[in-house]
Amino acid sequence: MSTLSRVSHATPTSLTACDLRIQGAMDAATVLAIRQDSAKAATDGPILILLDITEVTSVGASGVVGLLEVLHLLRARGGDLRLFGSSAALDDTRLQAHLGQVARIYGTREEAVDGGTSPVRARHAARRPGWLTMFARRHRTFGWG
């Protein structure tokens, strides 16, 4: 059984922030609760949802797909969804790669709030190849181009 709980934090950002935490399984039911909370919070305008994934114990494909839907919903309204924390369950699944192509997973809440805009973070991000580069490398390896 998983639980979703709100966490209270002040956020120094131009967007209003809402902190959520997943405890247990990242599945369709949990993501439905995230979607409902996110949609409710976004009724007053763009919002930044900060999602702590540290206590995720298992990950289902429906959970990843659901998070991508929430991300799309928030970005369409001018907001964003940022995940942070380290979860062994998420690290052990290949689903993280799919999620990571669209939504970066930050190490800490502060990094998620910052969004990689500090000079140090920007320098590190510039050295990391994007998903398109990785895709091209993978297909060249198999002789597709």
Rank of each mutant, 00 (worst) to 15 (best):
M1Q: 07
L4E: 01
R6D: 02
R6F: 01
S8Y: 01
H9G: 00
H9E: 05
A10D: 10
A10L: 07
T11V: 04
P12L: 01
T13L: 02
S14E: 12
T16S: 03
A17I: 01
C18S: 09
C18L: 02
D19P: 03
L20P: 01
L20E: 04
R21H: 02
Q23T: 11
Q23H: 11
G24F: 12
D27K: 13
A29R: 08
V31L: 11
V31G: 09
L32K: 04
A33E: 04
I34S: 00
I34N: 00
R35L: 00
Q36V: 00
D37F: 06
A41D: 06
A41M: 05
A41L: 06
A42E: 13
T43L: 14
G45F: 14
I49R: 10
L50W: 12
I53F: 06
V56M: 15
V56Y: 14
T57L: 02
S58F: 11
S58H: 07
V59K: 03
S62E: 08
S62Q: 05
S62F: 06
G63Y: 09
G63Q: 05
L67Q: 12
L68M: 11
L68F: 07
E69S: 11
V70K: 07
V70S: 01
L71A: 11
H72P: 04
L73V: 00
L73E: 11
L73R: 07
R75L: 11
R75A: 02
R77Y: 09
F84D: 13
S86L: 15
S86Y: 14
S87H: 08
L90P: 12
D92P: 10
D92G: 15
D92F: 15
T93R: 09
L95P: 15
L95Y: 14
Q96M: 13
A97Q: 08
H98S: 15
L99W: 14
Q101Y: 11
A103F: 14
A103M: 14
A103V: 15
Y106I: 08
G107L: 07
T108D: 13
R109H: 01
R109E: 04
E110H: 11
A112E: 07
A112H: 05
D114C: 12
T117G: 05
T117F: 04
S118K: 03
A122D: 03
A122W: 05
R123Q: 00
R123F: 10
R123Y: 06
A125W: 05
R127G: 08
R127P: 01
P129L: 05
G130N: 05
W131K: 02
L132I: 05
T133F: 06
T133I: 03
M134H: 04
F135Q: 06
A136Y: 03
R138K: 06
R138I: 02
H139E: 06
R140Y: 09
R140V: 08
T141D: 15
F142C: 06
W144C: 12
G145I: 12
